[in-house]
Design a protein around this nucleic acid. Structure first.
Length: 495
RNA sequence: GCAUCCGUAGCUCAAUUGGAUAGAGCUUCUGACUUCGGAUCAGAAGGUUGUAGGUUCGAGUCCUACCGGAUGCGCCA
């Protein structure tokens, strides 16, 4: 055990190893819609997917993140009518998403009441699909404005994508795909639509997949299959992970079953078929146990949610700072940054802590609590360790390249043992796609550290004991920081 | 009706995938050298794991039935 700690202290590893051989993994997550505000419905997919991407990259895998945005569909007919008739240019400049949302709501209501408007929307959609220059221009503009919104939010969340290939990207591939599926005998006509049946799969016997509607149009199953084909050709992945809510389970069962049938139809060997995983999650509920909404019943916009997280965290920071002696307060100009890191960390942690498959109740008070299994508690544990090193500066020999860890106290041994299992925890998460394992692991690290901290003086001890304990502190800080980084959560030197 | 998931302490959740006395937090109660940062720690209280069977040396975990809940179920995504 001491050998492992010493080699980690020398920077040779951090209790985990790179995967051999590395796999290529495509991760599909977030997937917001063009011309609509991102809302709480996108948060779990975004945070979970980003976390899995960070973890798999750290373990040495080749990860491809692809944001499959909703940039195509019947809603654009209505949006185009609205844009041409009612666009308020000033509103578009100040709040593009808000203005597009207004247009959509207004036209959507009008279409229900007025057949002429509905017909106009249909015609605009047909023109767009036919390549009409003006409509294409407007459509591109809507995507550009939406992407700016996505980028702002992803920037705040620290989320990055390698690719953003929306639904429209696959339009040219839909017709050939359907033709291939017919040629291979996988799809046949039924009640005017083109359908894939799964007679040999009991669970799907009653649930065939529609890949072409009776009006000749394609739907999202068609697009998802085309997307799958493109990903296979482009990246040759070993695994593709879809991060969506649990309501889409049946859809993905169909996609996966169609994929298997297709692979066997083209004679692909079993071992060469990529693994497909639907990493699904439950809903976020309000305190009343119903889907999380604002007081007025609107969906909660993600931008507002993040603003509120920071502002609530600021109140906490301010309260805590004012409780301290003036000499021990941090400069006031640092408070907003502390609030930002604590607030966003709290939201992410609250989302990753519960088993992803269960619904959870969104509670500001719980996620921002300073005690219990929360992000601020972990960030605090980290800041305390950093404080030790600020005080130790100049009096420590910790930069030596040889270390001699000596574990004596019960608390030292418990902490050290737990650090050694970091790698096992990471592998379990990579296998089952369950970041809550990491949350619990880190909470235990922090708990064992504070227990050690209470019982084993570091700076007040001397000689080899002091050096050894400093190394243990340093390793704990590194594991905490690395673990939180996988969760997409930042740490602070002081808070 | 069928499918998927769930039911664990008053509340919110865990349980390393079938292992030893089911663990945390919140809440309540009791303590901690004028603190290496008290945004902390130690302790107490709190359980027939929805019910009834079954498999197993061993079940919160697997199987069956029932009770209760969430979600989904051909032309939205």
């Amino acid at each position: 055990m001491e050998n492992a700690l010493n080699s980690a202290a020398r920077g040779e590893h951090l209790f985990f190893e790179k995967a051999t051989p590395p796999k290529t993994v495509v991760i599909d997550f977030s997937s917001p819609n063009v011309a609509k505000p991102m809302h709480v419905g996108h948060i779990r997919s975004t945070i979970l997917g980003d976390c899995l991407a960070r973890l798999l990259r750290l373990l040495g895998h080749r990860v491809v993140t692809d944001n499959h945005i909703g940039d195509w569909g019947t809603q654009f007919g209505m949006l185009l009518v609205g844009w041409k008739r009612e666009l308020e240019v000033v509103a578009l400049e100040t709040d593009a998403i808000g203005e597009m949302e207004r247009l959509y709501k207004k036209l959507s209501a009008e279409c229900k009441e007025n057949p002429a408007t509905l017909e106009a929307a249909r015609q605009e959609l047909v023109k767009l699909q036919g390549g009409d220059e003006e409509n294409l221009h407007i459509w591109h503009e809507m995507i550009r404005l939406s992407q700016a919104q996505f980028d702002t939010i992803y920037g705040r969340l620290g989320v990055k994508f390698d690719h953003t290939l929306g639904e429209s990207f696959y339009n040219p591939r839909l017709q050939p795909l359907v033709e291939e599926l017919i040629a291979k005998g996988l799809a046949r006509e039924s009640e005017g639509a083109l359908v894939i049946f799964f007679d040999d799969i009991p669970a799907l016997k009653e649930h065939p997949a529609l890949i072409r509607k009776s009006d000749g149009g394609f739907n999202y199953t068609t697009t998802d299959l085309a997307t799958l084909a493109h990903r296979l050709e482009t990246w040759q992945p070993d695994e593709i992970i879809y991060v969506t809510d649990g309501r889409q389970q049946l859809h993905f069962q169909q996609i996966f079953a169609a994929f298997r049938a297709w692979q066997s139809a083209i004679g692909n060997r079993q071992s060469a078929i990529p693994k497909l995983a639907h990493v699904w999650f439950g809903s976020i509920l309000g305190e009343d146990g119903k889907p999380f909404k604002t007081r007025s019943g609107e969906t909660v916009k993600l931008a507002d949610l993040l603003d509120e997280a920071e502002s609530r965290a600021f109140d906490v920071v301010k309260t805590k700072q004012l409780e301290r002696l003036e000499s021990e307060r941090l400069p006031e100009n640092l408070w907003p940054e502390i609030a930002r890191v604590v607030g966003l960390g709290a939201v992410k942690y609250a989302d990753l802590l519960p088993n992803r498959q269960s619904d959870y109740v969104f509670s500001w008070d719980k996620m921002l609590a300073l005690s219990g299994n929360t992000a601020p508690y972990l960030q605090y544990a980290y800041a305390r360790i950093k404080s030790i090193f600020r005080k130790a500066e100049g009096t420590s020999n910790i930069q030596h390249s040889t270390f001699n860890i000596q574990l004596a106290a019960r608390e030292e041994i418990a902490l050290a043992k737990h650090l050694l299992t970091f790698g096992l925890t990471l592998e379990a998460i990579a296998e089952d796609h369950r970041p809550n394992f990491l949350c619990n692991y880190l909470y235990e690290v922090a708990g064992k550290f504070t227990s050690f901290y209470e019982n084993c003086p570091v700076l007040k001890s001397e000689g080899a004991t002091r050096e050894s304990r400093l190394v243990l502190c340093d390793l704990t800080a590194r594991v905490l920081k690395q673990g939180l980084e996988i969760l997409g959560i930042e740490v602070l030197e002081q808070m």
